[in-house]
Amino acid sequence: MSGEDGLSPVTVIGLGPMGRAMAASLLRAGHPVTVWNRTARRADDLVAGGATLAPTPTAAVAAGELTILSLTDYRAMYDILGPVAESPGPSGVLDGKVLVNLSSDTPDASRDAAAWAARHGATFVTGGVMVPAPAVGGPGAYVFYSGPRAVFDVHEPMLGLIGEPRYLGEDPGLAQLFYQAHLDVFLTALSSLLHATALVTAAGVPAADFLPGALNILTAIPAMIGDGWDLARRLEAGEHPGDLSTARMMGATADHIVWTSEKAGIDTRLPKAVKAQYDQAVSAGRGTENWTVLYEILKAGG
């Protein structure tokens, strides 16, 4: 079954903000889109735009070869598709289907899900969407994928409507590994931004006087530390020359942030965690090396 323009049908299960954005992008491109969600009213706008609301998950999966999942986690996938896998018939409903799971979970959860799908005759592709829902399908949107290359290649044009597909390899855990690692940077940056704002406003300074400059710090980091290729080379080579920002110097700054936070009466757990890493580097006799020596401490588990 294809649309009037010969475009392949696709099913989207899970209609939170991200799932709705994906389905809308696919609809705009002309694909026949079937949707399902526990709360059916979330599909109203999509149905008004031409989508088909399936009455059950089984009907949703049966509507085409490709099903995209946008759920809270992989447990939700099992809750929804478990009964589908056991549906009666000459062959399971999942047999021959392609499941592209764009939900968040762990790399191991992705590998387990791929094995589960294979037991039911389906092919599993893992994905991690690296933009918020409003940016889906727009400039700059990109998605990490991993899983069987041949299957990914077949569906890449359709997946490209969600964001630029960045294929990482056959291991189904790779997409979630990259997704979680990127969000590690993102979430830590967000927490530090809010902590710093609390530090300033505790002194009676309006947040508006601080945040524009603080955001400039975030965007200036690449220029300060060098491009990613050079940094990766130095980390992989174990090169941490102490000719500029040493671990001891950075640790002293981290200590000042802890002290200032305590005096301001705000939460100190984040700056104390950062200070502890520099303290470990100094205790290990590596205080005169570059701040990047923390990579060695972190790799070793602290």
Rank of each mutant, 00 (worst) to 15 (best):
L231A: 11
L161G: 04
T72G: 12
I13D: 00
T56I: 05
V131D: 05
G16M: 02
R166C: 13
A220D: 15
H31Q: 03
L159M: 10
W259Q: 15
S261A: 13
T253R: 13
A63L: 01
D267L: 07
S192Q: 09
M224L: 14
V98L: 03
E170Q: 05
L159D: 06
A59C: 11
V93I: 10
P9Q: 03
P57A: 04
E262K: 10
N216S: 14
A109V: 00
T39R: 13
L199S: 11
M22F: 13
L298A: 15
A118I: 15
L215T: 03
K275E: 11
N216R: 12
V293N: 06
P241A: 09
A284P: 03
A203N: 15
G228L: 15
L194I: 10
S25P: 01
S146D: 04
D153I: 05
D112M: 08
L270R: 07
I266S: 01
Q280L: 11
D79Q: 15
T260S: 13
M22E: 09
P157M: 14
A276N: 08
Y74S: 09
T288I: 06
L102G: 08
I68K: 08
G64P: 02
D5A: 12
R149H: 12
D184W: 06
I257V: 13
G14K: 07
G3W: 01
L298E: 13
A118P: 06
K275F: 02
M250Q: 13
T106S: 12
N37R: 07
P222I: 00
V151Y: 09
Q176N: 15
M130N: 09
I80E: 00
T39N: 14
K272N: 13
F178Y: 10
A62C: 07
A117D: 04
G251R: 02
L194N: 11
A133N: 10
D230H: 11
F178V: 03
D227S: 09
A113I: 01
G121Y: 02
V143W: 02
D230F: 06
S191D: 12
R233S: 13
L270K: 04
A85R: 01
T260H: 15
D44E: 12
Y167C: 02
T106C: 08
K263T: 08
A54W: 01
A118N: 08
E164G: 08
A203P: 05
G82Q: 07
L215A: 12
V125N: 00
M250C: 09
T288G: 14
Q277S: 14
T219R: 15
A273M: 15
I13M: 08
G238C: 06
A281E: 02
S91V: 11
A133C: 02
V200N: 00
F186Y: 10
W259V: 14
T260V: 09
D79W: 06
G127F: 01
T292Y: 14
D243M: 09
L69V: 08
M77V: 13
L69Y: 06
E4F: 10
N290M: 09
M249E: 11
M130T: 06
D95H: 15
D44V: 03
V131M: 12
V274L: 06
L193T: 14
I225H: 02
I80K: 01
G19N: 05
